[in-house]
Design a protein around this nucleic acid. Structure first.
Lengths: 138, 138
DNA sequence: ACGACCGTCCTATCGGTCTAGGACGGTAGG
DNA sequence: CCTACCGTCCTAGACCGATAGGACGGTCGT
């Protein structure tokens, strides 16, 4: 799972962790019933405080994507993939609309923006292969 | 000028003010030599602290878009429009690329995204008329 | 000269977030 | 049973940005 956390970003580390976990669930990297990394383990890997991971896991539980079992671990719920995908669809569309409006307002040519989309799709198809490998290996 | 500041946003109020002023300069709403709103006036209008406006004005001066004259006011520099346009072009393209990549990764159809661009362009052409009126009136 | 307005600076405080470190009880495998 | 690991909670502190309020000197029209 992608656990890179940028401490200089405007979006707080805990939210970056939430997004990373949701991405992993939506991508099928974490399936329902799978156990998430331990609080201390993920904290060490992402170089953040365990309390920050706790907060992220609590947010994920409130979203219904995961459930924590005391003393055992945090697990992906059956509804996890649906929740993660729905959230990502809504969020990314909203931010994309804002970004598109801002870019158009700044004077960017529509053709340049379309090219950026095509480029993003191309870059995605390359990375998609790796994700599939990781899943089949798990 | 658009001085709406969202206190709940992740981007700090001072940066929102910077963006709003740059937008106004890039749109021609504020021409070189024009005086920006007073620190206290803008603070009252945007419902923020005068110190927050001071910080925004200082950032704008560092960018080279404005210059403050002690006791008189803050004025748009000759290079202001160029600076503002260049900044907006670079910033909006970067955020657009990120948003596009995220949207594609989330599974959005390329056609949906293209439609969002077209829609943004349509919305812009409507608002552009007002901006032109305001400028010709000034 | 005077008064209103201006930008600037200063100190103190508050709120949110992350960090630090320790403690508790539950779970599970040997 | 016992040990290791787990999630959870707590207190305390640091940090950053915005807020609050006051003070200073410069500018400009009258």
């Amino acid at each position: 799972m992608n656990v890179r956390v940028d401490p200089h970003s405007l979006v707080p580390p805990s939210q970056q962790l939430v997004a990373a976990v949701l991405d992993a669930i939506a991508a099928g990297e974490l399936a329902p019933g799978d156990k998430l990394p331990s609080v201390r383990g993920l904290a060490g890997e992402a170089l953040v405080n365990p309390n920050t991971v706790i907060k992220a896991y609590r947010d994920l539980e409130h979203l219904g994507a995961t459930e924590g079992r005391n003393g055992s671990g945090v697990y992906v719920t059956a509804a996890g993939p649906d929740v993660a995908k729905a959230l990502r669809l809504a969020e990314t569309l909203a931010t994309f609309q804002q970004a598109a409006a801002a870019a158009v307002r700044a004077g960017h040519d529509e053709q340049v923006l379309r090219a950026a989309i095509t480029q993003a799709r191309g870059a995605r198809e390359l990375g998609q292969g790796e994700a599939g490998k990781q899943r089949s290996k798990a």
